[in-house]
């Protein structure tokens, strides 16, 4: 009964639209599919979208976890405010985020001007894409790690210290194994969100083909040309790659849990 309801809902909401997408993409025939896939411009766009999402997720993994740690373990003035502010990237329309980031990081913006003095550019380069994705992805890591950290008991860390473990050892062998599944899930979510992000990036990327053009923009460009099939091909490639990566992360997580379970 529950399974039936779940499967029906899953089909209606996820599987049917996605299979329509894949079917449409396959309608172009294997040769055209390969041509679009192997086009240097498609590859460059995919590389940027996945690469920037990966870097941003990695950075969020570290700083998101630190942020969650600080919020859970420390009591300081303004803690609640920071806690609430972390959700803002969720709530803000992505276009607003993009425009705000472009304003700050453009060569005449607050931070962009400093970068210009130092001789490099942030907005309108791939670096701008990574920055936008860090902004968008941060809450995913914080909000998945935070509740797990709240559950972990301070006693265990204290016991670890009493038994003579160094701080570093306590972090890597006591704390991290406990939050590890949440930590990976959050990172995976941030990554997945980053791969598909369009609204915020479009304002900060520069959108130059082969340099700062993201895969979702390529899809929009194909739609502008009324090339619906071509657009679905790029979408299908993104979908398949994301699926494989997320699956791999899930496997990795399960493997890690087994390992820790045996300790």
């Amino acid at each position: 009964m529950t399974l039936g309801i779940t499967m029906t809902a899953l089909c209606l909401i996820v599987l049917i639209p996605l299979s329509a997408l894949v079917l449409r993409a396959l309608s172009v025939g294997p040769e055209a599919f390969w041509d679009i896939t192997s086009d240097p411009r498609t590859l460059a766009a995919l590389k940027l979208s996945f690469g920037a999402a990966f870097i941003a997720a990695a950075i969020n993994m570290v700083f998101g976890t630190l942020l969650a740690w600080v919020i859970v373990r420390y009591r300081f003035a303004g803690r609640k405010l920071i806690d609430a502010a972390i959700d803002l990237p969720f709530a803000l329309p992505t276009a607003v985020a993009g425009i705000a980031l472009a304003t700050i990081y453009a060569p005449n913006g607050w931070i962009g001007a400093v970068a210009k003095e130092l001789g490099f550019k942030i907005a309108f380069t791939p670096l701008g894409v990574v920055l936008a994705l860090i902004f968008i992805g941060l809450p995913f890591v914080v909000r998945t790690v935070q509740p797990v950290l709240e559950e972990t008991e301070l006693d265990i860390e204290e016991a670890s210290a009493l038994l003579g473990a160094s701080r570093i050892r306590t972090i890597f062998q006591v704390v991290l194994p406990q939050i590890y599944p949440a930590f990976l899930t959050g990172t995976a979510l941030a990554f997945a969100r980053g791969v598909g992000e369009y609204g915020s990036i479009i304002f900060i990327a520069g959108n130059i083909p082969m340099v700062s053009e993201i895969a979702p923009l390529l899809i929009v460009i194909k739609l502008e040309e009324f090339d619906y099939a071509g657009a679905t091909v790029v979408a299908t490639i993104m979908l398949a790659t994301s699926f494989i990566l997320l699956l791999a992360i899930n496997r990795f997580q399960a493997w890690g849990q087994n390992k820790i379970g045996n300790v």
């Binding site: 309108f124 520069g206 959108n207 130059i208 923009l217 929009v220």
Partner: peptide, 11 residues
């Protein structure tokens, strides 16, 4: 020489 290709003229 074009460093930014916006999607629309207003952009």
């Amino acid at each position: 020489n074009v460093p930014v290709l916006d999607t629309g003229a207003r952009g």
